[in-house]
Amino acid sequence: NCLEGLIFVITGVLESIERDEAKSLIERYGGKVTGNVSKKTNYLVMGRDSGQSKSDKAAALGTKIIDEDGLLNLI
């Protein structure tokens, strides 16, 4: 459970895995996936064609922004 207690938001199109697979992977390792960035969000996983508003909010809140490889490296 290397992601225990961590909260993730996924945005954009992921290249190597589907969004549902990424969500399942995060949950399997103890993390939680939500739909919107908040002060409780630990990581924003940004894929291709992701919206600017979520990354702006993450930056404003100090949320770590990672890509798909960054997510896989956490596991």
Rank of each mutant, 00 (worst) to 15 (best):
N42H: 07
I17K: 11
A60P: 08
D20K: 12
E4H: 09
C2P: 06
L72I: 08
F8M: 02
D49T: 09
I65S: 03
E21K: 13
N36C: 11
Y29F: 13
A60N: 07
T63G: 04
I17C: 11
L72G: 04
T34S: 13
L44Y: 04
I7Q: 15
T11I: 05
R19W: 07
Y29V: 02
Q52T: 12
K57G: 07
G35C: 14
L6Q: 12
S24C: 11
L6T: 06
R28M: 10
I26A: 00
K23G: 03
V9W: 00
A59W: 07
G62D: 07
L71V: 02
A59T: 12
E4N: 12
R28Q: 13
D69A: 14
I65W: 03
D49P: 03
V45C: 02
Q52F: 10
I75M: 07
A59Q: 09
D69N: 13
K39L: 09
S50G: 15
K40M: 08
E68I: 15
E68L: 14
G35P: 14
T11F: 05
V45Y: 14
S24I: 12
I26D: 01
L14T: 05
K39I: 12
E68C: 09
F8K: 03
Q52D: 10
L25Q: 05
K39N: 09
S24T: 12
K23I: 15
D67I: 00
D49C: 07
V9K: 03
A22G: 03
T11R: 10
E27S: 05
V45K: 00
T11S: 14
K54P: 08
S38I: 03
G5I: 01
T11W: 09
S50E: 09
L61Y: 15
C2G: 03
K64I: 06
G70K: 07
T34D: 15
G5D: 05
E68Y: 14
A22E: 01
A59V: 12
S55G: 11
L44C: 06
I7E: 15
N73T: 10
D69E: 13
G70Q: 10
L61R: 07
S55P: 13
L44Q: 02
S50L: 06
D20I: 08
V45M: 01
S50R: 09
G70L: 02
G51Y: 14
E68R: 09
E18T: 15
D69I: 12
L25I: 07
E68S: 09
V37P: 04
S16R: 13
L25K: 07
N36D: 11
N1Y: 06
I75F: 08
D69F: 10
V45L: 09
M46A: 12
L44K: 00
D20S: 13
Y29M: 12
L74I: 05
D56G: 10
R48V: 06
G12L: 01
R48E: 04
N1S: 06
K57C: 09
K57Q: 11
E68D: 05
D67F: 04
T63M: 06
L6W: 03
G12H: 02
R48K: 14
V9M: 04
D20M: 09
V33F: 05
E68A: 10
E4K: 12
M46W: 02
Q52N: 13
K54N: 13
N1D: 07
T63E: 01
L72N: 05
N1G: 09
E27T: 06
G47S: 06
L44E: 01
T41R: 00
I26P: 00
S55K: 15
E15D: 15
N73R: 12
T41L: 04
L74M: 13
E15A: 11
Y29R: 08
A58Y: 06
D20L: 08
D56N: 12
L71W: 01
L71S: 02
S50F: 14
N73S: 11
I26W: 00
G51D: 15
I17Q: 08
G62S: 05
E68P: 07
I10N: 09
G35D: 15
G62F: 01
V9N: 04
D20H: 13
A60Q: 12
S38D: 15
R28E: 08
M46V: 14
K23R: 12
D20R: 10
T34G: 09
A58Q: 05
E21D: 11
T63R: 01
I26R: 01
K39S: 10
N36I: 12
L74E: 01
S24W: 07
L71T: 02
G5W: 02
S38L: 03
F8T: 03
S24N: 11
I65Y: 01
M46S: 07
N73I: 02
S50C: 10
V13N: 15
T11Y: 07
G62M: 02
T34K: 12
I26L: 04
N73C: 06
V37Q: 01
I75R: 02
A22M: 15
D20C: 09
Y43F: 02
D56L: 12
L71K: 03
D67T: 13
K64T: 11
A60S: 11
T41G: 00
S16W: 04
D20A: 12
R48P: 05
I17N: 07
N1V: 05
G47A: 08
R28F: 08
L3V: 03
N73Q: 14
F8C: 00
S16T: 14
V9Y: 02
N1K: 11
K39Q: 10
T11D: 15
L71M: 06
K40F: 07
S24D: 11
G70H: 06
L61V: 08
L74D: 02
A59H: 13
V37Y: 04
T63Q: 05
S55Q: 14
S55H: 14
K40I: 05
T34F: 07
L3A: 00
K64V: 06
S55Y: 15
I7C: 10
D56T: 13
I17W: 11
T11G: 10
G31E: 00
S38P: 02
C2Y: 11
K39F: 06
T34I: 09
E18Q: 14
